[in-house]
Design a protein around this nucleic acid. Structure first.
Lengths: 254, 254
DNA sequence: CGTTTTTTTGCAATTTACGCAACGTTCTAG
DNA sequence: CTAGAACGTTGCGTAAATTGCAAAAAAACG
């Protein structure tokens, strides 16, 4: 009987603080103490005390009337460091920029993190209105073109470890939630060298994904995303051609 | 006897976590557990447990060999939200970009945070090699052109509150550490409408700062910074002229 | 292969934090 | 203008999390 292996973590305060900051992150408008405490399921006093500490740390700020909370600028410094640490970004983004100008669709850069794809950066083309994901956001490997491109770089062992550790969720009618069709698709990607996301992650969004791997090291992946109606056969062919070129150029610099 | 009013904060774990993350931030290379524990003055076991929680939260990651720690991509999401919250940035940056192209020197955008100037963003000109400050970094109000530009918007009351709450540090030979000369300088700024930093914050760096205030609300400030040797009289005159124009344009949109 | 260095685990004392309830303050309505 | 409600803040006792020690495990080194 596979009991849900409930890992124990220290720092309950930290996790609570994260919940609070994540709630502020998700809120469309800066929330009040009451709103936060209701949504993260803690008493107002607890939330207030954590918020005070967070404020002292520079992680949250409050509006002049001290009613609403929003995220602090300390994160700008952290994020800059992150961007510097992940220098894949510096190497890849210039190339991806040329790719955008060539094909006039949004290009995304992602890395693998905790069995998921984290969107490191993206360049939107002029014609884009569709929001695929926010920078810093995450998506599943099994439902995204970048994820499947990377899965195709895994050994059979790694793939089976991934699928057994993952619970599949049907995000759209097209999402592959059964292991066999996912493995079949990944097999195709291995032969082709690129992956598709045919409205599997988000309705109406079609993506072509390319991995960025060299010397058995997975640096990340990039993808081109567009609304389904613009994904004509000739366009896809063009994207594959240009994408492969860019992929080769990036790999030569990694 | 003015006893150091030691404010009590809850969430000691949070503050310790911040110390750890800040140490990682400051480190040139990703530090190991040992290095962290030595520098933040906590036992290794404590640091390890906090790091595990931080890792779980997505705030830190470790290298493949699990030895070195670095900041996680979660901060990219937070930072993006911060940038969105501070929409001054979106309004000002286009104008500051034109300013950069006109005068060919680095332009900085800052906001007031906790009696200090936080650098929100900057645009470096081609000719720049000098590093004034990193985005997300902070500088004193008394030693920076942006700070003094904002001090000039304060009432006499607010200024005296600021100086009494501040301990002045001589960062360079030119730093104004006595209250009288600072107040005198701020008085000049009030009349002129712009502030100078004549190597007061960093040797060899000269800045001209402009405040961004409207309806008694302080949105922030911007400055032009350059190496001292390029700060000729005619150049300064040009910066003042163009800076004032840009300041007016930005204010009309705030 | 033994020795040293570093990372990880378990544990019990101590410290810290949680939420209750009461208080202050601000907003709302009659 | 006053009463009442709603929200934010504070203090405190108990309950729970955290700390650092010491010891084990793992890795690095010669």
């Amino acid at each position: 009987m596979a009991e849900q292996k409930e890992e124990v973590f220290y720092g309950t305060v930290l996790i609570k603080a994260k919940e609070i900051m994540d709630f502020i992150l998700e809120s469309r408008v800066s929330p009040t103490l009451k709103e936060i405490s209701e949504n993260v399921d803690m008493t107002k006093s607890t939330v207030l005390k954590i918020l005070k500490t967070l404020e002292h740390c520079g992680y949250v700020r409050r509006t002049e009337d001290a009613k609403q909370y929003y995220l602090g600028t300390m994160f700008l410094a952290y994020a800059q460091k992150v961007n510097h640490t992940f220098d894949i970004r510096q190497i890849t983004m210039p190339h991806l920029a040329t790719l955008v100008s060539e094909i006039e669709e949004t290009v995304n850069l992602g890395i693998v993190e905790n069995q998921q794809i984290t969107l490191l950066d993206k360049i939107e083309s002029n014609s884009t209105v569709y929001l695929v994901a926010r920078v810093g956001g995450q998506m599943h490997m099994y439902s995204s073109s970048m994820g499947k491109a990377i899965l195709a770089e895994y050994s059979d062992d790694e793939i089976s470890r991934y699928v057994s550790a993952t619970s599949f969720e049907k995000l759209t009618p097209n999402t592959m939630t059964d292991i066999s069709s996912l493995i079949e698709d990944v097999g195709k990607v291995k032969k082709r060298g690129y992956a598709f996301d045919n409205e599997e992650n988000q309705p109406d969004i079609f993506c072509v994904g390319f991995s960025l791997c060299k010397n058995n090291h997975i640096y990340g992946a990039f993808s081109v995303s567009m609304p389904k109606y613009r994904a004509s056969e000739e366009k896809i062919a063009n994207i594959i051609e240009e994408g492969k070129k860019i992929q080769a150029k990036i790999l030569s610099e990694l």
